[in-house]
Design a protein around this nucleic acid. Structure first.
Lengths: 242, 242
DNA sequence: CCATAGAGCTAGTCA
DNA sequence: TGACTAGGTCTATGG
């Protein structure tokens, strides 16, 4: 791993641009710090006036313009974008990243580049644990967390308005539609359950249950209004974290 | 703006750590490239094995661990986090970022630091244009884009299950609940309109209209099922972009 | 602080 | 490719 091709403050714009083009062509991740303007045209339209910013160009094609406050970038282009790097007549380095569907252009114009760092992609990353899908699996193995006597028959049962998280029958043979949330249930989760209840057609009696560690007050009221049920679960207990 | 305090490949871990602590204490944005492991405990649990990564520490407290593929970071901590930087007995630099509510810890352990870049926050950024709120304003000024004779009476009308985007009356004095989307309407947007229609109480006849540039097939079917209406708008025309 | 809703959401999955 | 949904969503706003 060599870092000798990184841009240094002493490099002029032509040298800097060439180093960055070489690194990008060689499928390296490129991080650039310098003075730039940023122009985005697509689903929205934004312009950032000249200022010092960090730009990351990933080998996958993703481009990220970071600010110094939030986690979310100021501007970006996702991995399906095609990125060209060039120098213009004003001696500015232009990074132009285009995507189709939707057709969008991100154009970054560097008036000066202070430094850059280039490196080859590594990464053997472990998966996230504790997702909603993990929770589904736990509940399928242990449906008594939801209700005694409950049997889960299907996971992600597809109906015409979406997929039902868990579908089963209770101990007196009612069908049960279950929507699972790993965090406090919001009113929109009641909407979702209601949609499945409205669309699913059955001869049997069907119960609707929202399963979550907690529920907002208005969501609970709305749920009761529809005569659906809430089943509280203890995430820490289910995942054996304490 | 001086960059002389950035970490260089020749620095040992103690020098590197001190430079980074100094920069962070001086409220600079810090970008670090090196070999590290990453451990997150909070709403989920993740662990990244040793690998070369970029870490950004923002003066606001936000910490971002970037991968080399996607726009979204591998791990992060939002701006309300408290970040401590330290060196441990194994000569590793530890970045420990804690947030409360929810209580979460991100711990990054650098076994080696290749380079870093530090800089003071600048940025005088222009706002995004073309948001849904901009669209609301356009539609309030020009309700004929939705329907001739329509009058908008309220913007973001609060009822007990949420906020109605636009509320008005049509030319035969029906009340109209309008949900606006700037992109293709999905089935969950019908849910949202339906929730408002179910909850809003009136003596008059109430119409529900979903306003968007397009609508998915299943969303349209579901909308018709409820006897709500769809009004197609031309975003490019409304925002005068062509 | 909690609740709601938007976002250029992004990213993944499945038909 | 479109549709749907989760996400450690994040972030802004209003009560």
């Amino acid at each position: 791993m060599s870092y000798c091709d990184d841009v240094l403050p002493s490099d002029n714009m032509l040298e800097s641009t060439n180093k960055i083009i070489n690194a990008h062509t060689a499928n390296k991740a490129v991080i650039i710090v310098g003075e730039c303007t940023v122009d985005f045209n697509g689903r929205a339209w934004t312009y950032l006036d000249e200022g010092r910013r960090t730009v990351r160009i990933n080998p996958s094609g993703a481009v990220v313009v970071s600010g110094t406050k939030s986690v979310k970038p100021k501007n970006w282009q996702t991995s399906d974008a095609k990125t060209e790097i060039d120098i213009d007549d004003d001696n500015h380095m232009i990074i132009r990243s285009k995507s189709s569907n939707p057709k969008e252009i991100l154009e970054i114009r560097f008036t000066s580049v202070y430094k850059s760092i280039h490196y080859s992609p590594p990464e053997n990353d472990v998966e996230v644990e504790g997702t909603e899908d993990d929770l589904h699996k736990k509940l399928i193995s242990n449906p008594e967390y939801i209700e005694n006597g409950l049997k889960i028959l299907e996971h992600e049962k597809t109906i015409n308005t979406g997929d039902i998280d868990l579908f089963g029958i209770d101990n007196i043979d009612n069908e049960v539609i279950i929507e699972v949330k790993r965090k406090k249930a919001q009113i929109e989760n009641v909407d979702q359950l209601n949609r499945y209840m409205n669309t699913y057609d059955s001869d049997k009696a069907v119960r609707g249950i929202l399963v979550a560690p907690d529920i907002t007050e208005s969501a609970e009221e709305y749920l009761k209004n529809y005569q659906y049920e809430f089943s509280k679960i203890d995430i820490a207990k289910i995942f054996d974290k304490k």
